[in-house]
Design a binder for these strands. Structure first.
Lengths: 226, 226
DNA sequence: TGACATTAGTCGCATAATGTGACTAATATG
DNA sequence: CATATTAGTCACATTATGCGACTAATGTCA
């Protein structure tokens, strides 16, 4: 029943994993830091300490604005991580994942840089874990929140949308099935613009416009149980 | 770029929402506390402070063991909550939800008591929020983890299993469809025991025995998007 | 005992959702 | 004009799902 504050109370930071699509893959925003006497270059995800009275989401916003020119289009809390060490010495990292749309991935200054997930620099245990779980969090929310749309510009072709889903799911989808399901849900609206990419037939541009709310109340799915 | 520790560093606790089925509904374990000069009785979910070097899951275990005779059969992190106040004065609550199976819901001492979700005492904002999100977390994981099974005894009838799903989903399911899906997934194994509940035909007892891993790789579901 | 209520468990059919290959359309290249 | 390339659609087979109706096994009570 020891509820008295210890000699050293545990404290926390808010760490933000910002993701953007790049080269048919996801990239994460990392911040440079120099460590030790030889100034070894290390990388970690942006973070900020919480001030009294500030909401967690606000701190996350603050942390990510330091590094990106663009405001993320979506973000959500991933969880709390306490394993390993933290560059700021925090005992606990509250992790937010933030999505930055295609083409808005400019960074501010030398301190920040995007890294492809397949080509990451060396990271501490906690950093790796946070990254892994952030990507999982986005994947898990894929059919609950329109995260794929949040990674695209305001208007996009249906092929681009499909490729974004394929990127996030890590597997190929069948074109006709994809479009049929999309059309059944009335999730996108056609614009009157078309995009010609040089070769092949031009593609019509669509915008995200969820209107119809036909909540399907289907049976239980046992086939996903792990 | 203010990364220096503030005059008062923010600190956190681990709070645990323990759930058990009771009277065709979920119940939550709350802990009594006396507050103010008139010793008003207040209730809150069990919590514990983190000690250096202890993992979050361990702290959660410690917090919940104080209140229940039984060890929870499953638990997972829900998230971090900072709104409002906390009985221990912590700035941040890391919330774990823990499942206690049917029939193992004894409490230790007067300090703890189960409350039906439909009949809760007055709670602070943060406590209500934590509770709400914990129930949502269980519901969201329903077809990813066998949470319904974790709320049942080791052996159970298929009707009990269906009622548990109905309880968690908040809607009725069709018996034949439910069993067909269950059978297709090869999730349960029959035992040679039968249970007679007095009236009606006796029911065969089953145990959870997931072996077949036929991961369905289906298309994208747009119909769930919020 | 035998009709009835009650709960367990199964079957079969209609409909809906999905996988898939093949098709047409519109553009650029040579 | 033939060919390559990407967009977009169609039709059909297969699978999944909703659902009512059926049989089975027990207890209750007249």
């Amino acid at each position: 029943m020891s509820r008295e504050p210890r000699s050293r109370r545990q404290h926390y930071t808010i760490d933000v994993v910002a993701l953007t699509p790049r080269d048919a893959e996801l990239a994460v925003l990392l911040e440079r830091r120099s460590e030790g006497r030889d100034k070894t270059v290390r990388w970690n995800v942006p973070w900020a300490a919480s001030k009294p009275g500030e909401s967690l989401a606000d701190v996350a916003q603050r942390a990510i604005r330091r590094g990106t020119g663009a405001t993320p289009t979506w973000s959500t809390q991933v969880g709390a991580f306490s394993d390993g060490t933290h560059p700021g010495g925090s005992d606990l990292s509250i992790v937010y994942v933030a999505l930055v749309p295609m083409g808005e991935d400019e960074v501010q200054g030398d301190e920040f840089q995007w890294f492809l997930l397949s080509d990451l620099p060396a990271l501490t245990d906690r950093q790796s874990q946070m990254l892994q779980e952030s990507v999982n969090a986005v994947r898990d929310r894929l059919d609950l929140y329109p995260v794929a749309f949040k990674l695209l510009p305001a208007t996009f072709t249906l092929s681009e949308l499909q490729h974004m889903y394929e990127l996030l799911l890590g597997r190929r989808l069948h074109k006709a099935s994809f479009r049929r399901a999309l059309s059944a849900a009335s999730l996108v609206e056609p614009t009157d613009e078309w995009r010609s990419e040089g070769r092949g037939r031009p593609a019509q541009l669509f915008r995200f416009g969820s209107r119809k709310r036909r909540r399907g109340k289907r049976g239980v799915r046992f086939d996903l149980l792990g």
